[in-house]
């Protein structure tokens, strides 16, 4: 006697058609896409604001008595304000007083530190050829040692009135005998040198290209405060 093997299977176990699979995935993707666009739209303005505020605060920190700023870039070989919504490869920031008088530039620079890239912003006053402030924006230096490049007020203070000519030098703590020298942090010589090297290298890129004193781009009317990043 031969037993008939049933080929009938319950409905649920049947292989769904490829079309069903594709439709399911497409639907899932579609819903997910809509959700992501939604959250992006909802948070975009806050995120952009946060970034712009962070940047503004950093610029105001490295340039004394500055209350307004704008982003500058080389367009057609001329340093000019970056139009709203556009982006350029290399930009710097110009800081102005309340009365829209030019004070100096805040120049972003980056380079290798002890562990990872250090990103920093420093204030530069072309009139005195001096660095007047330095703020580390991003770094992964060793906690307790290398992170003193932004936690140690004495080290950061080195950059508050620092002539850049001929170049900025790093010397051992307590051996400072010239204005253009910076006291290294004990035990974190490499991080200290990295900061100074970044500033020197960035200076080389920018300083020769800055407009002559007095012909810096002007701050547009007060109402049009620049807030893009």
């Amino acid at each position: 006697m031969t037993e008939v093997i049933t080929t009938d299977r319950p409905e649920a176990d049947q292989d769904p058609s490829p079309a069903r699979l594709i439709v399911t995935l497409a639907l899932a993707g579609l819903i997910s896409g809509v959700a992501i666009v939604g959250i992006f739209e909802a948070t975009f303005s806050t995120i952009a604001e946060n970034k712009a505020r962070e940047l503004r605060e950093a610029v105001f920190k490295v340039l004394p008595s500055v209350t307004q700023m704008q982003e500058l870039a080389y367009l057609n070989d001329q340093l000019m304000p970056l139009p709203q919504g556009e982006s350029a490869e290399k930009t710097i920031y110009a800081g102005y007083t309340e009365e829209a008088k030019f004070v100096g530039y805040a120049i972003p620079g980056e380079g290798p530190g002890f562990q990872d890239t250090i990103k920093l912003l420093y204030g530069y006053m072309p009139a005195d050829r001096k660095v007047v402030g330095m703020e580390v924006l991003e770094s992964r230096e060793t906690p307790g040692l290398g992170d003193k490049i932004y936690k140690d007020a004495v080290f950061v203070g080195n950059f508050s009135d620092l002539p850049i000519d001929p170049v900025i030098e790093v010397v051992k703590k307590g051996r400072r005998d010239s204005d253009n020298q910076v006291d290294a942090i004990t035990g974190a010589t490499i991080s200290s040198r990295a900061v100074v090297r970044i500033i020197n290298e960035t200076n080389e890129i920018w300083l020769d290209n800055l407009p002559a004193a007095g012909s810096e781009p002007e701050m547009p009317a007060k109402s049009d405060e620049v807030a893009h990043d």
Binding site: L25, A28, G29, I31, S32, A35, I36, I39, F40, A42, T43, T46, I47, N50
Partner: peptide, 17 residues
């Protein structure tokens, strides 16, 4: 897809807040 959607939502929310 479901997990990634929630992760993206969390990512943007944290970035904003």
């Amino acid at each position: 897809i479901i997990i990634a959607t929630f992760v993206t939502v969390a990512d943007y929310t944290l970035l904003a807040l």
